[in-house]
Simulated assay, not measured.
Amino acid sequence: MTSAGPTLLQPSERLVALGSLAVRPVAYGGENGAGPLPPPSEPIDGLLVSAAEARRPALLRATTNVYGFVDLAPGLQRVLVVDPRGRFLPRAIAVDVPDRRPLADALARGAATLPAVADPPLALAWLRPAPGKQRSSGVHGVVRGPSGAPLALAWIRVDTPEGRFVTYSDHRGEYVAPLPFVRRPAADDADVQINVRVHRLLAEVPASADALEVFPASFDGLAPEIAGFDAVYEQAALVNKAVQFEVGKPVRLDLQPA
């Protein structure tokens, strides 16, 4: 009886086998009661995906728009996603990475039998649009505190009859909330009433260009109605008001407490 030889993997298979985390950036377009609205099908190119504890940069597989890390240590990892082209706001996500080192060691030895380990997780990074570009339909403006100073990383939710858009302000306090899913009323001259709610981040935001140092990695799971929100944002809304929105146009709406 002959013994089995060492397990041989093609380069692409080896990358998958040794991978510790996969990150797929996705363009956020709003949500309804069932969850996020379906994102565009086209991939997002030109992003920088990094982690402080990674010895090598994430590798992009263009056919799937997935960025893969191969050397992240097990445990909770903070991953940063930045768009150098300025289309999307920078953000951070937190992912629990399983221990896949026994598999890497076995492959390095050319072992005939590979140990069973957890698959590398696939994490979605929902990217919000960056302010600065005109939108066909939506609201945009600056978030300010009671003193009139711009507020960075403010939590912003725009509720409409068809769904909601949750985003955050950039380091200058600017925000944009596209609302292409809002339908025009039967009467052509009728506006739609929307509600805008803003909460201030508890952590002090440094005067850096991206404020990623204090960005809440749990952002997508935060809402005033969900437990734990008050550990990250002020529970009392800075702004909570109904406004009239003209469908089909970019509407300037600066947000500041009365």
Rank of each mutant, 00 (worst) to 15 (best):
S20D: 10
Y175Q: 03
D83S: 01
D188I: 06
R252L: 14
A186Y: 11
Q10M: 08
D230K: 04
Y67G: 04
L201R: 06
Q77M: 06
L21M: 04
L103P: 14
L21N: 06
V23S: 07
A227C: 09
V66Y: 06
A54K: 01
E162Y: 05
L59F: 08
A190C: 10
G5R: 14
D188S: 12
L60P: 13
A231R: 14
E162P: 07
Y28K: 07
E246D: 10
P224M: 09
A207R: 15
V143I: 00
D220P: 08
Q10I: 01
G35F: 10
I194H: 00
G141A: 05
D99G: 02
T7H: 10
S20Q: 13
S137D: 04
N195R: 15
A51T: 03
A22P: 06
G19W: 08
P6I: 00
L59V: 09
L89E: 10
Q134P: 04
G145E: 00
G163W: 09
R61E: 15
H199I: 03
Q77T: 06
E204P: 09
L127Q: 02
P146W: 00
D230W: 00
D170N: 12
E31W: 06
V205Q: 01
A111K: 09
A17D: 09
T167I: 01
P90S: 09
G35Y: 13
A52Q: 12
V239C: 02
A34R: 13
L76E: 15
E31C: 00
E246N: 11
E174D: 15
N32V: 01
P25M: 02
S3E: 14
D71T: 07
S169D: 05
K133N: 13
L18N: 12
P216G: 02
Y28M: 04
Y67W: 14
L9W: 10
R100E: 03
V81L: 12
Q134E: 15
T7M: 05
A92E: 03
L47K: 00
A130F: 15
Q256Y: 04
L60Q: 12
R128K: 11
E204D: 12
A112Y: 11
A125H: 07
R144T: 10
R157K: 04
R252D: 11
G30Y: 00
Q256H: 08
A22L: 14
Y233S: 03
V70R: 02
L151H: 07
P161G: 06
V95W: 05
Q77S: 14
R164G: 01
L72C: 06
F245D: 02
P39A: 00
D45L: 11
A112V: 02
L89V: 02
I44R: 10
K241P: 05
L80T: 11
L76M: 13
Q10W: 09
A186I: 11
T7D: 08
M1D: 08
F69A: 07
P25T: 01
P161L: 06
A34P: 02
R61V: 13
L222T: 07
P40L: 03
V23Y: 12
P150S: 06
R14S: 12
A152F: 07
D159F: 12
L48P: 01
A4D: 12
V243L: 06
T64E: 13
R14E: 12
G29K: 07
L80V: 04
A190F: 09
F219D: 01
G5V: 05
D83R: 01
A4R: 15
N195S: 13
G75N: 06
P115E: 00
P38I: 03
R87Q: 13
K249C: 04
Q193C: 05
V142L: 14
D170K: 03
